[in-house]
């Protein structure tokens, strides 16, 4: 299949556990990129640290596997120095919103043209199952043996408030929607965020008695609903899927071109 043209086959099978949702995100992303017909040389993928971040090494783009939480800061440097490149930044929930929270809101504020993918499995998988800022209350984790009392972020609301101009959410169950949203996010000019609810059967599912990968994906099916659906008004606990924000605001690199113009006018 053509999507295999975008991967580094020699590193497969990948390191993720059986049933890990991150592989499905990878799968959807490949299809989104394939549908765009971009040159692989135009795509730079920047990731941080964690299970999610290993996605970059599997892809045949320019790949930058950086340090925990800082992927967006590295990506900002790549993008501003070469604005013609397409930047995709996959991150885990802890990576993007705990240690990387500051970079997340500031990349959104600048509206720099990066595509941020938050692979939200509500747990730190690579380190063995500690709770994350997206775990929410009542979750069992290795650092919450009596269940969490921490509230979680709503990634979409946070991204909207910080100034992201494209914000969407889907799940690993809803792969067709996910592919479509990733495609739109990459095409969007400005800071775009796609939150993907993804399963960690090994640490989140098992410890929280949610079953295996299949049961967790069924949970995504049963507990989510399209944005603005009637079901949401009847059952506010449902998690909305779809596009939350799609708007236009000056993109950072384009805006900086005006700084260059003004500076050069002032000089001569």
């Amino acid at each position: 299949m053509a999507v295999k043209d975008f991967i580094r086959e020699r590193f497969f099978p990948h390191i993720w556990c059986p049933g890990c949702g991150h592989g499905i995100v990878l799968n959807s992303l490949l299809r989104a990129v394939e549908s765009l017909g971009m040159s692989k040389n135009e795509i730079v993928m920047v990731s941080g640290i964690g299970c999610s971040s290993r996605i970059s090494g599997y892809l045949d783009f320019h790949t930058l596997h950086t340090i925990h939480g800082r992927a967006l800061a590295f990506a900002t440097g790549v993008k501003l120095s070469r604005p013609e490149l397409n930047l995709i930044v996959p991150m885990g929930d802890g990576d993007a919103l705990a240690i990387g929270g500051n970079h997340f809101i500031h990349a959104a504020r600048r509206n720099i043209d990066l595509t941020a993918i938050v692979m939200n499995n509500r747990i730190y998988g690579m380190t063995g199952g500690q709770f994350s800022p997206l775990s929410g209350c009542g979750v069992m984790a290795t650092t919450a043996p009596f269940a969490t009392v921490d509230q979680s972020f709503d990634v979409a609301e946070l991204a909207r408030a910080a100034g992201a101009t494209f914000v969407a959410r889907s799940t690993t169950y809803h792969v067709q929607q996910l592919t479509k949203l990733l495609r739109e996010a990459i095409l969007h000019e400005g800071f775009s965020v796609v939150e993907v609810l993804t399963q960690c059967p090994t640490y989140f599912g098992r410890r929280n008695k949610m079953g295996g990968a299949v049961e967790m994906m069924k949970w995504f099916k049963d507990n989510t609903t399209p944005v603005g659906s009637k079901a949401k008004t009847e059952n506010p606990a449902l998690i909305e899927r779809g596009i939350f924000v799609q708007t236009e605001r000056p993109e950072y690199c384009k805006a900086y071109d005006q700084v260059i113009e003004r500076a050069q006018k002032g000089k001569k």
Binding site: M1, C20, I24, V175, T179
Partner: peptide
Amino acid sequence: KLCELRCPDLA
């Protein structure tokens, strides 16, 4: 093709 799209292992 839902199996293909949902396969986490591209298998």
